[in-house]
Design a protein around this nucleic acid. Structure first.
Lengths: 142, 142
DNA sequence: CCAAAATAGTTCGCGATACAAACTAATATA
DNA sequence: TATATTAGTTTGTATCGCGAACTATTTTGG
């Protein structure tokens, strides 16, 4: 069998991680959908909230092809949520950034996400929340 | 600002949860893609690994429309990974289940997922892993 | 017991997502 | 300066997911 890597309770940590992730992603999807956004667009908004980047860099952040970004940004632009402008330093490059409406939506959505995810963690005491955060951060560390 | 729900370190717990989920989903996506499966198909395989269910029930598990399942299963069937058969009790219903090849793929993929996610948690000591698991499970509890 | 309603799946048409390959324009490099 | 690299777009393709319309079976109510 393939489970040579762990034997004791390790398996259920992996399980718990996967289930947690599905639960979190379900929350994110729902909140995004409530604002007519896809999960990817939600990520885009998170990135552009405090940054102005080129299409290439955005594609890199998202792990998507540039050609995917073209369509993604075109749709968001048509909705008036992001804007595109020539990069002043490189005439090949195109900068993308949130419009005023996009920024407002980003704040709204980010607030909703924070609220809904906080609801998820509400079952834990303050102390447990702190310990959970510390463990997750240690795990995510490079 | 929208973050009225929390002030202290809580915000970063939500952050850590979201980042963890993205990391986990990235692993799942990658592993799935390595076996020419989508994230949804991965979930299907997880469900069908030890169950034979009707299309409707599967749709319910996944939170998808029945019409979505039709295409999903048709493609998987064409690849020889799942099979469909009339339900003996209800002649309207169609049961789906993994073929031998599908079952084998499911085991392989599940092993790979377990291994890759275990790699993620490898930064933590055995004790920390146990504590993390306990916290996550407490959080997921109904 | 039978007409009407509910349920199970499929089909069809649609839009969004994502990729790869081919292309244009601009910048770097040899 | 000729060539290679990089940035984005365009085009074509496949998948995903939805909703509406449809068929075939139960279920239910009178």
């Amino acid at each position: 069998m393939a489970d040579s890597a762990q034997d004791n309770g390790d398996g259920s940590l992996v399980d718990a991680l996967a289930r947690t992730s599905y639960a979190v992603m379900a929350v994110l999807s729902r909140v995004a959908a409530e604002h007519d956004l896809s999960l990817t667009q939600l990520r885009v908004f998170g990135i552009l909230r405090d940054r102005r980047v080129t299409m290439s860099r955005l594609a890199e952040y998202l792990g998507l092809e540039k050609s995917t970004l073209t369509g993604l940004m075109a749709r968001a632009e048509k909705r008036g949520l992001v804007e595109r402008a020539a990069n002043p330093d490189d005439r090949r490059a195109v900068d993308v950034y949130l419009s005023a409406a996009g920024l407002e939506l980003a704040e709204t959505v980010s607030g909703a996400v924070a609220r809904e995810l906080a609801a998820l963690t509400a079952a834990l005491s303050a102390g447990e929340q702190g310990r959970l955060r510390a463990l997750l951060e240690r795990m995510l560390e490079p």
